[in-house]
Design a protein around this nucleic acid. Sequence first.
DNA 1: CTGTTAGCGCGTTCAA
DNA 2: TTGAACGCGCTAACAG
Lengths: 352, 352
Amino acid sequence: MARKRVTLAQVASEAEVAVSTASLVLSGRGTEVRISEKVQERVRATAARLGYRPNAVSVGLRKGSTSTLAFVSDSVASSRLAGEMIKGAIEAARDRGYMVFVGETGGNLTLERQLLDAMVDRQVDGIVLASMLTHGRELPTGLDSTPTVLLNIAVDGDPGMPVVLPDELQAGRDAASALVDAGLTDIHLIGSGPRPEDVRTISAAAHLRLQGILEVLDAHGLTPSSGHAINQWLPPEGFRAANEILDAGTPQAIVCFNDRLAMGVYQAVQARGLRIPEDVSVVSFDDASIAAWLRPGLTTVALPHRIMGKRAAELLIDSIEHDRAHPDGPAATGVHLVPMPVRVRESIRAHD
Amino acid sequence: MARKRVTLAQVASEAEVAVSTASLVLSGRGTEVRISEKVQERVRATAARLGYRPNAVSVGLRKGSTSTLAFVSDSVASSRLAGEMIKGAIEAARDRGYMVFVGETGGNLTLERQLLDAMVDRQVDGIVLASMLTHGRELPTGLDSTPTVLLNIAVDGDPGMPVVLPDELQAGRDAASALVDAGLTDIHLIGSGPRPEDVRTISAAAHLRLQGILEVLDAHGLTPSSGHAINQWLPPEGFRAANEILDAGTPQAIVCFNDRLAMGVYQAVQARGLRIPEDVSVVSFDDASIAAWLRPGLTTVALPHRIMGKRAAELLIDSIEHDRAHPDGPAATGVHLVPMPVRVRESIRAHD
DNA sequence: CTGTTAGCGCGTTCAA
DNA sequence: TTGAACGCGCTAACAG
């Protein structure tokens, strides 16, 4: 087990040069300090022959920076999202030579504290703090001593660090526009509404999506025909709300606040022998995988989790490397809105 | 930014003891080497006052072990699974004081090599190598120099390291039994079959599930009424296969090789005005989230991804710590089958 | 019982 | 142009 790694000293001794010479050559600064091409070649050859790889732990201790990022999220049940964000972040990190520690807190603040400490102990160069539900929350302390980016965490006031958020407001507008542009005017809401204050969840998405929808409706002189503010956005709730609507007559269109609610709506509509989109149009949010699997395909405004994760890691690395170059410069900051693209499928039918 | 961390030397100097004394005390071995209670208290107090935390990088360099694991997977599109495995592993690791580096290769062997190297450079204590589709594959070289556990990777011959796999064979038996025990005898297969060799995917799951199903059927003097070997296990394919079956008459029961196929089956069955389970019983595999959302709830044999991840991390840590205690003992090995529990919902109806 | 010393593997002065 | 020496922060021998 663990056959000993070859060290720089071994390479140097084998190549009959001093350790510092080997170090210089292998870090690419050989020519810069004018080490003879012959010696450089010899060092490189023996390094390759011995399979030398620098010990990153030692380099980390020496340089104080480890090319390592921390990704800490609270990902609860609805976790598919988390996975994509993490992947996006890992991918971006890898492209820039960083590795990432991943931690999950399950919303437990004590655990979060421990995880963050453990990561800082391991000298991570920066932290992505992610949440699965965008609601405001208290930030852990001590984040100001390490570059940090907030991912999918809406915070009141200026957190003094970059924040990556999906553009839910525009998503709301786009969803409503998709319906209105199709000539639909009898529009029902399932998830939140009908009034701006009718929101039952802590998610910031609910407020913003609703606001965007109402804004567009209002611009066309419309108001929601009904609204069903719901706490849990799952298929059974969508099913129930859809039935309430259907009991009062066939609606032209329904906006679901996420795809799982839409799934329940499909079930209720189809159970009555009605057809989507011929009888009722449906639009939704998230673009979870079921959106493509439903029949007919569900038109939905996608939450680009992977891109968000990627964006967060990129901002973080930019910030780390900027800090390194300008230690006394101002810290990076600002809200970065990631656009939510509309995935057009077959659940909306143009109305004359 | 990055206000300097307090070091052990500072604590020692502040507490007016030698560094080694402070080290001993803070690592809990103070009493063991009989350091006066008074001194110990003083050291602990100043450490706490200064907010001292050991620098894990330094410890790693010194001890050669970093309390860090690598989790490398190839997770392709069907990624929800990966997320759960990772979480299980992270959770188990955290419980035992380990942190985990996560990497994704997307099936790219070059990338895998780089990732593995980068992790080994960072002195990880062990590696979990995971795959999303269980098919046999070549193992990267050099894995024998670091403790490794294979997760969801079936390999021909003895890999010389622990392997964690779901018990697909038993799952196949259980799925078939659920139907047979309900008195159903007209059983159709969607995904693989009807003969043992009718498998169109590289996934090991397909073979084993089929084998388990056929075994039970055979034990009851039954054979599949039809089998539909499919390459891509997605709803449209399930829909199409179900229609083929329905065109020939109403089947008593259908076994779907995963929940997405089952979703397509639901769509086809319900589009014809038939009802599940009154007219057709359905059983499936995976227990993806749609299984619970479908109406009626889909009875399915769950793939316990989280538990598998957890198990892999535990085995890995056991192996690491065992190696440390017995450096010349034999390496851990063996295949660890994780049971796949049946989630009984409402898609099977007893037949007289 | 406590303090001194020597590295872990590497990068970086500073002399030669 | 190259080599010797120091130190990042910590642990583990070994003296005292």
